[in-house]
Amino acid sequence: MIKKLPDIRLIVGFLIAHVLMYFTFMDRSIFWYMFTATMLCLISYSILNEEIDDEQTFGTYFIYGVFSGLLLYVIFWTGYAIIDILNLPFLNSISSLYGRYAPSNIWQYIVLLFILVPGEEIFWRGFIQKRVMKYTTVTTAVFISSLLYASVNLYSGYWILAIAALVGGIFWGYLYAWKRSIPLLIVSHIVFDLVLFIIFPLI
């Protein structure tokens, strides 16, 4: 049965995310500190208000996580290659985005892998999308939650980051709806970030 009453916890959680992400992107010099604090707050809010799904075995979520993370990187690489071939103006934005927000030292990689990635999956898929799915169809819920995920990235000043978040949100959103495993999504997101930032950066 589809619920009709407003989900106050969902609305409050989304508003908290917007406020925190606004301040996160305000000052580049403290971005990594603010982003870490923001995700810790959103993780706490999520686990206080929603159970974390883990319906897959370790082997299943590890294998699906690794392969899906690599697949998403291929999708992003293909998009970047098309932008490069067509010489679209997004190219400069991607380069600038890497320079401004990509991790640059060991502690940033540590918080990326152990706080930021898990936090994003726990909050945006395990809390926001899961609650939206109570009100509508899977496809609608995936697109709504992905748009919400993309919206907080607009504070960065880079449309390309919001577009990337939208694409990633749709990909991980469908994966979550299919497998109902937050650990799987975390592995997928970690693999994607490792390839994107360390192994084969786009820039």
Rank of each mutant, 00 (worst) to 15 (best):
D53P: 04
L20E: 10
W77G: 08
D54W: 00
A17Y: 07
F58A: 14
I47C: 06
S44D: 08
S44K: 07
R9I: 15
Y45W: 05
H18D: 10
D84M: 10
I11C: 08
F67T: 02
T24P: 07
M26D: 12
H18T: 14
F67P: 02
I75C: 04
V12S: 00
F14Q: 13
C41P: 03
I82T: 03
I63F: 14
S44R: 04
A37R: 02
F67C: 10
Y45G: 13
V19H: 01
I47V: 04
R9D: 04
L70F: 09
E51M: 10
T60Q: 15
Y64K: 05
I30L: 14
A17I: 05
L20R: 09
I75V: 12
C41G: 05
L72N: 05
F67K: 09
I75Q: 03
I11Y: 03
G59N: 12
D84H: 01
S29K: 15
F58H: 06
T38W: 07
A17P: 03
L72E: 03
T78N: 12
I75A: 06
Y45A: 11
C41Q: 03
N49Q: 02
A17W: 04
N49W: 06
F67L: 09
Y22R: 12
C41Y: 10
L40M: 08
W77M: 10
I63Y: 13
A37N: 10
L86S: 02
I16H: 01
T57V: 01
A37T: 02
F35R: 11
I83Q: 01
G65K: 00
V74I: 13
S93L: 09
F67M: 13
L20Y: 08
L70A: 10
L15M: 14
S46T: 03
I43A: 03
M39H: 15
E55F: 01
Q56V: 07
F90H: 12
F25Y: 14
L42M: 12
L91P: 02
I85F: 13
Y64L: 05
I83W: 00
V66N: 02
G13M: 13
Y80C: 08
I85C: 10
G79D: 04
W77S: 12
S93A: 07
L15E: 00
W77P: 09
Y73N: 13
F25S: 06
D27Y: 15
Y73D: 12
T78G: 15
G79F: 00
G13F: 11
Y33D: 07
